Simulated assay, not measured.
Amino acid sequence: MSILPMTRHYVTHTDPAASMRLASRFGSYFNLLPPCRRIVVVCIGTDRCTGDSLGPLTGTLLGKYRSPEFEIFGTLENPVHAMNLASTMDQLYGRFEDPFVIGVDACLGQAASIGAVLVGDGPLRPGAGVNKQLPPVGDIHVSGIVNIGGLLGYQALQSTRLNLVMNMAGLISRSLLVGVRMSAERAIKPAAP
């Protein structure tokens, strides 16, 4: 779970156009990447806490697409969490030269923002919402507001509705896939005469 950085693009998971809005945002990032720069999605969280399972659920849903266009770290089967985040990031940077990393994590926010997905420049700070010091993750970040922040941060994560988390994970995974595919199609289309 992370604290939100300042720059971000915001959509609610109930917006009928949310998937296309997010896909367009992702596509705008991916279109700027050189073809040799590998996209790596790092989905942070644990399935032991409903609210914090947004990352692993997103990674698992993305993994079902088996796309050669990006790599995934963090699924329900092999989660990336506080105990293995640093070693996972070391492994990632050892395996890929100059990857474009997308950090995905749950976060807490205001009651009116629950269900919102935020995409922004720069890394997310996993664990900051529950006072953990973990390495920052991502060239860009995706944060899903799953519950109310405040003094009861960890309890709020424990009492988060799974339906909300599943809907948000589906939205994020679909949008990432469409954004990657849109940018890949543009990259291979011949230039207009």
Rank of each mutant, 00 (worst) to 15 (best):
S2V: 01
L4V: 14
P5S: 09
T7Y: 12
T7N: 13
T14I: 12
D15K: 05
R21C: 09
R21P: 03
R21G: 03
S24E: 13
F26V: 02
F30Q: 02
P34L: 00
C36F: 09
R37C: 04
R38M: 01
I39A: 05
V40E: 07
I44R: 00
G45D: 05
T46C: 11
D47G: 05
D47V: 09
R48T: 13
T50S: 14
G51D: 09
G51M: 03
L54Q: 07
G55E: 02
P56H: 06
P56D: 07
P56I: 06
L57F: 07
G59E: 00
G59Q: 00
L61W: 01
L62W: 05
G63C: 04
K64N: 08
Y65V: 10
Y65P: 00
E69I: 02
E71S: 14
G74D: 04
L76C: 14
L76F: 13
P79Y: 09
V80L: 08
H81D: 12
H81G: 06
A82Y: 11
A82F: 11
A82V: 11
M83R: 14
S87P: 02
L92A: 08
Y93R: 15
Y93Q: 13
Y93G: 06
G94Y: 06
R95E: 13
F96Y: 15
P99W: 06
F100Y: 12
F100W: 04
G103T: 03
D105Y: 03
D105G: 06
C107P: 06
Q110W: 03
A111G: 01
A111H: 12
A112E: 14
S113E: 13
I114R: 09
A116N: 13
A116L: 00
V117G: 07
G120D: 10
D121G: 10
G122V: 12
G122Q: 09
R125T: 13
R125D: 08
P126F: 01
N131H: 14
N131G: 11
P135W: 07
G138P: 04
G138C: 03
D139S: 15
D139Y: 07
H141D: 00
V142Q: 02
V142N: 02
S143Q: 11
G144S: 03
I145P: 02
V146H: 04
L151M: 12
L151C: 03
L157I: 08
Q158A: 12
M166H: 09
N167C: 13
A169C: 11
L171Y: 08
L171M: 12
S173I: 09
S173K: 10
L176R: 05
V180P: 00
R181F: 01
M182T: 12
A184M: 07
E185P: 00
E185S: 11
R186V: 06
I188T: 14
A191C: 11
P193Y: 05
